[in-house]
Simulated scan of single mutants.
Amino acid sequence: MRAALPLRTPLLALTVWLLLASSSLVQAACAWTERGDEIFEINVRAAGCSTDPARVSQAIRVQQFVATNEYGHHQWLPGDMSQVTTAPDDGRITIVYVHGNKVDPCMARDRGLQVYRTLVGRDTEHRPIRFIIFSWPSTEVNGILNDYRVKASRTQPVGWQLGYVLNQLSPESPISLLGYSYGCRVIGGATHVLAGGDIGGHSLAGQPLANHAPMRVAFIAAATHSGWFSSTGYHRQALDQIDGVMLLNNRLDPAMRLYHMVEKCSDPQAMGLCGPQYLSADQRMKICNYDCTSRVGRSHDLFKYIANGGTMSIMWNHLTYSD
């Protein structure tokens, strides 16, 4: 009997974990229903790398996460852009989450919901929000280095696509942006084009700009060039559209340390390694760096970054303009 115990223990532990996880999901769903939050997914995967407004508009798929009964049963149901472009009656803040690389459509929704639950778990004032998961084509492709570079290339047109989507949202509602890893590159591009810039010659020219107020931004392990927010950087106009940036950096994150391999002919440093570089004094005033090296260590795991309650409380207050 004792010899069999080690074989049964992992199965028992897995069973207990699944039961606890199931219980926590139900509790989270109930808490979400009680909060009165709105949760959407905007999926642009069908648009590929297009920067044609007509094609992107036709390719966008919207889903809403809804509760179907009082017991916490919930599911994703088809929606449309009018649900997210209309300003909430109560002026609630819209938080847009942009995931990182190697994320398929189901993972995008699941991880987005986990990020949402972690964030609202730090809310002490019970203020409802509109939470949007932005899903872009980041499903893994063959070859580690090939995947890394292909997705880096995709973030450029996808940044334009996010800018196009954000431009459709009502300027009457405050907007905050939260990105992880390559999602930060996407957000950098989006805010750059919203401020009138272009990505590879593609801007929002011909689209009336919605004149949004500067947005709050949070970056987790930012897989984007450390110098791209500078006055000569690729996303040089991004900070014009940003009220403030909170960055969770890690000097031991393997993805941050190997980021220089994203390009063949240069040696860029990741913004998520030590923060942005080459900024003016006025630009630096918008930046707040948090060193997570001692807590996260040699990992690029999203959930290790968001596991610290104190840091997530600061992020919640930052994204909801409560600081």
Rank of each mutant, 00 (worst) to 15 (best):
Ala281Leu: 11
Arg117Ile: 08
Asn317Ser: 14
Met81Tyr: 03
Asn308Ser: 12
Val296Phe: 03
Asp110Gly: 07
Arg257Glu: 13
Val66Arg: 04
Val62His: 03
Gln83Trp: 09
Thr51Met: 12
Glu263Met: 11
Met246Phe: 11
His318Glu: 08
Ala47Asp: 03
Leu247Val: 08
Ala238Leu: 01
His126Arg: 14
Gly188Gln: 00
Gln64Asn: 09
Asp110Phe: 12
Ala108Val: 06
His225Arg: 15
Glu172Asn: 12
Met1Ile: 09
Phe131Lys: 00
Cys30Leu: 14
His318Gly: 05
Asn167Ser: 01
Tyr182Leu: 15
Cys49Pro: 05
Val16Ile: 14
Tyr71Gly: 13
Ile132Leu: 10
Val245Met: 04
Asp253Phe: 04
Ala221Gln: 06
Pro174Gln: 02
Thr33Val: 06
Ala210His: 01
Arg92Ser: 15
Asn249Cys: 15
Val165Asn: 02
Arg2Ala: 13
Ser299Thr: 10
Tyr290Thr: 10
Asp52Tyr: 06
Leu5Gly: 05
Gln207Tyr: 04
Ser231Glu: 15
Tyr321Thr: 08
Leu258Ala: 13
Leu12Met: 12
Gly121Arg: 03
Pro268Val: 05
His126Thr: 10
Leu119Cys: 06
Ile175His: 01
Thr86Asn: 07
His260Pro: 07
Pro78Ser: 07
Pro128Thr: 05
Gln63Trp: 08
Arg8Glu: 08
Leu5Gln: 11
Gln75Pro: 05
Asn289Thr: 11
Leu77Tyr: 06
Thr155Glu: 02
Leu113Glu: 02
Met315Glu: 05
Ser231Gln: 14
Gly196Tyr: 00
Asn317Glu: 15
Glu34His: 11
Ala281Gln: 14
Met271His: 07
Leu273Ile: 05
Met312Leu: 15
Ser322Tyr: 07
His192Cys: 05
Gly201Arg: 03
Leu209Ser: 05
Val103Ser: 02
Ser153Arg: 13
Arg295Met: 13
Ala307Phe: 08
Gly163Lys: 00
Ala218Glu: 04
Thr118Lys: 13
Ala47Cys: 08
